[in-house]
Amino acid sequence: MTNAVEIRELHKSFGDLEVLKGIDLDVAQGEAVVLLGSSGSGKSTLLRCINFMEEPTSGRVSLNGDLIGTEQGGRMRYRESDLCQLRTRIGMVFQHFNLFPHKTVLENVMEGQVIVLGRSKAEAKEKAMAQLARVGLEEKAPEYPARLSGGQKQRVAIARALAMDPEVMLFDEVTSALDPELVGEVLKTMRQLAEEGMTMVCVTHEIGFAYHVANKVCFLHQGQILEQGAPQVVLKTPETSRVREFLEGHSLFKLPE
């Protein structure tokens, strides 16, 4: 079976700063992959290279067997229209939700379907309501985002991405901006998606989520994947002292068993 996402020799520099130094990563269909690492390790940049929010400096990215861009003189070239088309196939959820504040919840979830995919309003509305039901927020459809809690906003953002029928979902630290008591509802929605077989790549600091939900964990350090594998292996018996330190830092104050 072809991988949902295949990344080969990916490099990304911002000016003189090389953030990604040769990444190889496979995400199988239906797999949930969690990217871990301290800030500055390149995990968010890697995620953003998958849907070309950032254009890689070199390397190849394939989505379900389709190589993105065309090779010309040893370099990959990307056409903006191709990238727009690619992004309709990949859903992305952000740390700060980024809902459209001038549109209602329902309009937020319909917008891409109508404007980008060209669906009829009736069809888009039906799909939007179905996705809002999926994240448990049907009754908020007529509200403006300003009236929602952070957790609700994030679930609407998830519904907005799902309404495009994406092949892969990307989550970029989606619980980092939430009050601790609202984190659970968003993680629960993500877990439910993973259990339904959605292919997902998540950047998160929620080690527990990684342990219980992910099929694969990748630990990034200084722009490279330092360790990857099943969460039960990487998170329980890390090979490198760098990963051990990171995990200890995250579980310094655990409740006694």
């Binding site: 849907n51 903006e80 727009c84 992004r87 992305m92 980024n98 459209f100 001038h102 404007i115 980008v116």
Partner: peptide, 25 residues
Amino acid sequence: REQWEAGKAIGMSYGQTMRRVILPQ
């Protein structure tokens, strides 16, 4: 900037994001 990113992430072109997301706000 996040509003530009939100439009871009659902596959909107520059023009579509400008017209539908940025200008109304």
